[in-house]
């Protein structure tokens, strides 16, 4: 009996090996390196908090604030777009369902950079959008190189990460639960707020995580669609690593950013608990 147990454990460990290897090599070790660089001085490697304090610099503080603002806005926009779509998909038949999901996934088969560059072509002063507007004798739009363009880029690039988890949780809600609610006299609104929405919260939360974190840390989108006129915290960190070759201050700023991500996760995670509670209740 005991033998069997250890054998099972060994088998499990072996099965988990590729994944743990991956995690150690590409997540744990790099993370430890960031912590090490972030807390040491560039000159002599002695321990310091200087790198973390860089965030208090007015420019960096402003960049962080702007990043938070833009990523929160784009996350909200993503939820507002993805949730109704998830509900709609739930109501449809399976076949057309997977087709629509496919349509939303299609752009993801293309390279992320190419997609962003495509938006540049669309939004530019003489871009596709403005050319069409000119032909129609409508006033042209100047979105490119503004925070609006960056939000647009974030929403476009990360929307699929919101749709998939929301759609998955909505899809899995048992029809009987909803029927029971209706049976017990709940109207459509009540069913949604008391049954469907609470049950779908885990999906919404993983969606938020998957949109908020990359939005907060991106530097490519702001470089391309912001014309480098909008400085986000991701750009500041990239500069430290690439242009100044200062891994210590770059890592320090990354650590601060991680704290913000963890904070936001904790905040959202709290909701998750109440959500589950409501759902089981």
């Amino acid at each position: 009996m005991r033998n069997k147990e250890t054998k099972r454990r060994q088998k499990n460990a072996l099965l988990a090996a590729p994944c743990s290897l991956w995690m150690i090599a590409f997540i744990i070790i790099p993370l430890l390196m960031i912590v090490y660089y972030g807390l040491t001085k560039r000159e002599d490697g002695s321990i310091t908090l200087e790198n973390l304090k860089l965030i208090a610099d007015p420019i960096n503080r402003r960049a962080l604030w702007l990043s938070l603002k833009l990523s929160i806005i784009s996350t909200i926009v993503c939820v507002l777009l993805a949730y109704p779509l998830g509900l709609m998909l739930r109501g449809l038949k399976i076949k057309s369902n997977s087709f629509i999901v496919l349509v939303f996934m299609l752009p993801m088969w293309m390279n992320f950079l190419l997609r962003t560059l495509a938006w540049l072509n669309i939004l530019e002063n003489n871009g596709i959008l403005n050319t069409i507007l000119k032909i129609l004798h409508l006033p042209t739009l100047h979105i490119i190189n503004t925070p609006t363009a960056i939000i647009l880029g974030m929403v476009y690039n990360f929307l699929p990460f919101m749709i998939l988890p929301i759609y998955n949780t909505l899809e899995k809600i048992d029809e009987n639960v909803i029927n029971a609610a209706r049976d017990l006299g709940a109207n459509g609104k009540q069913t949604f707020f008391k049954i469907i929405f609470p049950l779908s919260i885990p999906g919404v939360i993983s969606g938020i995580t998957m949109v908020f974190v990359p939005s907060l840390t991106t530097f490519v989108i702001s470089n391309i669609l912001g014309g480098s006129k909008v400085l986000l915290i991701g750009n500041v960190i990239e500069q430290q690593f690439q242009k100044l070759n200062n891994w210590n201050s770059g890592s320090g700023l990354s650590l601060v950013l991680m704290v913000f991500i963890l904070l936001s996760m904790a905040f959202v995670g709290k909701d998750e608990n109440t959500g589950r509670g409501a759902a089981t209740w």
């Binding site: 530019e124 002063n125 190189n145 014309g227 006129k229």
Partner: peptide, 22 residues
């Protein structure tokens, strides 16, 4: 100069100038 600048670029200047964006 910030408010006069359309964008800060390096490689993209080629395409933007060719397409007469600036």
């Amino acid at each position: 100069q910030y408010n006069l600048v359309q964008a800060y670029v390096i490689d993209q200047v080629r395409d933007k100038m060719i397409s007469e964006d600036a």
